[in-house]
Deep mutational scan, measured.
Amino acid sequence: MTEYKLVVVGAGGVGKSALTIQLIQNHFVDEYDPTIEDSYRKQVVIDGETCLLDILDTAGQEEYSAMRDQYMRTGEGFLCVFAINNTKSFEDIHHYREQIKRVKDSEDVPMVLVGNKCDLPSRTVDTKQAQDLARSYGIPFIETSAKTRQGVDDAFYTLVREIRKHKEKMSKDGKKKKKKSKTKCVIM
């Protein structure tokens, strides 16, 4: 069974824990209790493949930012979460993405942009803004509501699919490099 290491990042209060708990335990946590770091595991079937999701729910508070490099190193894919009623959390996505790329030393890291709290009427981040940002990053965008469960499975499952595509691409690139290195030079 394939294991996928997913990391949920975003500013404090955007609903990272609520999304994760909704996926794992099928219930909505409405009281806000700032996370330092929590880890969850769940076995699911995605596109006919049974897999184990190892999900790291991270601290959004700035005082825990020193811990970010460590979990970013171990993560295979990242859910970059903002709240649709919090423009600052949307603007912060850029910083999370840049930090992930720096730590992973790669421009090509599996990510999904997630606009959470889409059940709320007080939207300050337009869907088109988020779609445009995701398009500019070359990553999928999904709106979710941890409260109603809308888009929750889709967000995590899409990230797994992005990781699969990335692994497939990397193995193809690896095979191309191996083929090239088999060419021999004969000096007579």
Rank of each mutant, 00 (worst) to 15 (best):
49 E>H: 12
81 V>P: 13
57 D>L: 00
149 R>H: 05
90 F>K: 15
119 D>H: 14
76 E>R: 14
20 T>W: 15
46 I>R: 10
166 H>Y: 08
167 K>F: 08
95 H>T: 14
99 Q>H: 09
177 K>C: 08
10 G>N: 01
22 Q>P: 01
93 I>S: 02
78 F>V: 12
156 F>K: 15
98 E>N: 08
73 R>D: 11
107 E>K: 11
149 R>L: 04
71 Y>N: 13
33 D>W: 01
139 I>Y: 10
30 D>E: 05
25 Q>I: 15
73 R>G: 08
84 I>N: 15
5 K>F: 00
113 L>R: 06
128 K>M: 07
16 K>G: 15
9 V>R: 14
98 E>I: 00
50 T>Y: 08
73 R>T: 12
177 K>G: 06
150 Q>R: 07
54 D>W: 00
46 I>S: 07
118 C>I: 10
80 C>V: 13
4 Y>W: 07
107 E>H: 07
48 G>D: 07
84 I>R: 12
182 K>P: 07
180 K>A: 12
97 R>I: 15
159 L>A: 05
121 P>K: 10
186 V>E: 06
52 L>R: 06
36 I>W: 00
75 G>V: 11
62 E>Q: 08
176 K>C: 06
17 S>H: 01
188 M>F: 14
105 D>P: 10
178 K>Q: 08
17 S>Q: 01
155 A>E: 06
121 P>Q: 11
157 Y>K: 13
109 V>T: 11
12 G>F: 01
160 V>M: 09
64 Y>F: 05
96 Y>H: 05
178 K>L: 05
176 K>R: 04
76 E>G: 14
123 R>Q: 12
43 Q>E: 10
53 L>E: 03
142 I>R: 12
35 T>N: 15
24 I>V: 06
109 V>A: 09
174 G>R: 09
106 S>W: 10
113 L>N: 01
159 L>P: 02
188 M>R: 07
73 R>E: 10
2 T>H: 12
159 L>D: 04
115 G>C: 10
118 C>K: 06
9 V>E: 11
2 T>C: 06
184 K>H: 06
17 S>I: 00
86 N>H: 02
14 V>M: 10
119 D>P: 10
111 M>A: 01
76 E>P: 10
77 G>N: 04
114 V>I: 12
79 L>W: 05
67 M>G: 02
39 S>T: 09
11 A>I: 05
170 M>L: 06
65 S>M: 03
73 R>H: 13
70 Q>V: 14
88 K>A: 13
172 K>V: 13
29 V>N: 02
137 Y>A: 06
2 T>P: 11
165 K>S: 10
102 R>M: 08
103 V>P: 06
186 V>P: 12
99 Q>L: 14
79 L>H: 01
152 V>L: 12
132 D>H: 06
73 R>S: 12
8 V>A: 03
132 D>P: 09
18 A>E: 00
30 D>A: 04
61 Q>F: 05
104 K>R: 14
174 G>S: 09
150 Q>W: 03
170 M>F: 14
47 D>W: 01
15 G>F: 04
19 L>V: 08
83 A>R: 11
25 Q>V: 14
125 V>M: 09
88 K>L: 12
77 G>C: 04
29 V>M: 03
180 K>T: 12
66 A>E: 10
111 M>D: 02
65 S>Y: 12
39 S>M: 02
121 P>T: 12
25 Q>K: 12
25 Q>Y: 02
168 E>R: 04
160 V>G: 03
94 H>G: 10
139 I>D: 03
107 E>R: 11
133 L>I: 06
61 Q>N: 03
146 A>V: 14
97 R>P: 01
182 K>H: 14
74 T>V: 08
131 Q>E: 11
44 V>H: 04
27 H>G: 10
84 I>S: 15
37 E>G: 00
124 T>S: 11
151 G>N: 12
82 F>M: 12
167 K>V: 07
126 D>M: 07
69 D>P: 01
137 Y>V: 09
11 A>F: 08
116 N>F: 03
14 V>D: 15
38 D>P: 01
15 G>M: 03
35 T>Q: 15
165 K>R: 09
57 D>E: 00
166 H>E: 11
103 V>K: 14
25 Q>W: 02
93 I>G: 02
103 V>D: 09
142 I>F: 07
115 G>R: 02
174 G>T: 07
93 I>C: 12
7 V>E: 02
